[in-house]
Design a protein around this nucleic acid. Structure first.
Lengths: 193, 193
DNA sequence: AAAGCTAACTAACATTTGTTAGTTTTCCAA
DNA sequence: TTGGAAAACTAACAAATGTTAGTTAGCTTT
């Protein structure tokens, strides 16, 4: 028996992600996507069932990885600061693996329909809640400054979420330098004392 | 002589911004926008010339404010750290003034067409360059840590750019607390020493 | 060589959507 | 009270777009 070639489908989804990232979900028609693949629009439907499926596969797939990622970290027996460092690293890894998918996750999620949209919002909110809990623990234990948890949460989170839009363009920054400096800047700022 | 009522046009643009922010530019048709205004789609064209004009007015208007804002700060006779604090404050002020417009600026700019898109990209890149120069000055003068300027730049910038998506939902955080803590967290982090 | 998939193609449809043309209503100024 | 602009309406179009139906070409296996 021959192995099922999920290849072509993956190819389409990756091509679509790249185009969505460059020009926006709604600027990419099925005809444009097909042309980029070197085929006709109708042929896409031999591999995928709808444009929405392409979007949902990418976004919900990543969202699930983030939710299980943070839950794993939350249960580790380390202090809040270490947990937050782990979260930074997870974001960097996922972004390096799939920057175009990360772009869709941040900028095209509102074009998810029906249950896809509901599930996404639920996962996003679960993720934020787990992160918030880690920050609040840190404040209780005195390792994190007693600022508004919401300000700390979104300061970190939005920095991490936006990584896709600038890091892939940087050729001079080594991956390990990125990790170290992102952790330093995010946790301790950039002001010299 | 009666004052020209640019009012209705402004009303349309503000209503549109709010809808774009809630559901995404491409999910909002002229019919939906008109219904929200209590009129028919065709009637919108007595006040605006196209859907694109609505988007461009909002986004390019804000982009111009940011460019002139940062240029003014850049020319002040204060050190880099103080300049960066000023930039944080400018972002907070603009976001509080027009959170829905800020949302379009961040999430709908790719639906600008032709010169609108080109002008936007130019202004965004000018803005980032001014900001980058301030950071590099700070590093030269020793007030800013010698990390990669790009990492510092985008860590601050993306935090500020994402303010629109969470602050308007917070009812408990006072405007002045926001300003103080945003500056602290962004510049010096949240780790207790 | 025949059979059976897989994946491509052509053609076309049904909607949606931004927009225009032409007309009527509203309402303030004279 | 009336004239005229401002702003609404009805009707409709033209283009774009996601998708389906039916067909054909190309491999791989038997």
């Amino acid at each position: 028996m021959k192995r099922r070639p999920a290849n072509r489908k993956v190819e389409i989804i990756e091509t679509a992600s790249a185009l969505f990232n460059e020009r926006g979900y709604n600027n990419i028609t099925m005809r444009i996507l097909a042309a980029e693949m070197g085929i006709k629009a109708a042929s896409l439907y031999n591999h995928i069932s709808s444009k929405q499926e392409i979007l949902a596969t990418t976004i919900l797939g990543l969202a699930k990885k983030f939710v299980s990622g943070i839950e794993e970290i939350a249960h580790k027996d380390i202090d809040s600061i270490e947990k937050i460092k782990n979260i930074v690293l997870v974001h960097i890894e996922f972004t390096l693996e799939d920057p175009n998918g990360m772009a869709s996750l941040q900028t095209n999620w509102m074009y998810l329909e029906g249950d896809n949209l509901l599930n996404f919002k639920q996962m996003r909110s679960d993720y934020e809640q787990s992160f918030r809990d880690i920050i609040k623990d840190g404040i209780s234990q005195g390792t994190v400054k007693a600022y508004s948890p919401e300000i700390i949460l979104f300061s970190i989170l939005t920095t991490l979420r936006s990584l896709y839009m600038w890091y892939p363009r940087q050729k001079n920054i080594d991956k390990n330098v990125l990790k170290e400096e992102m952790i330093s800047v995010t946790l301790k700022g950039f002001v010299n004392t």
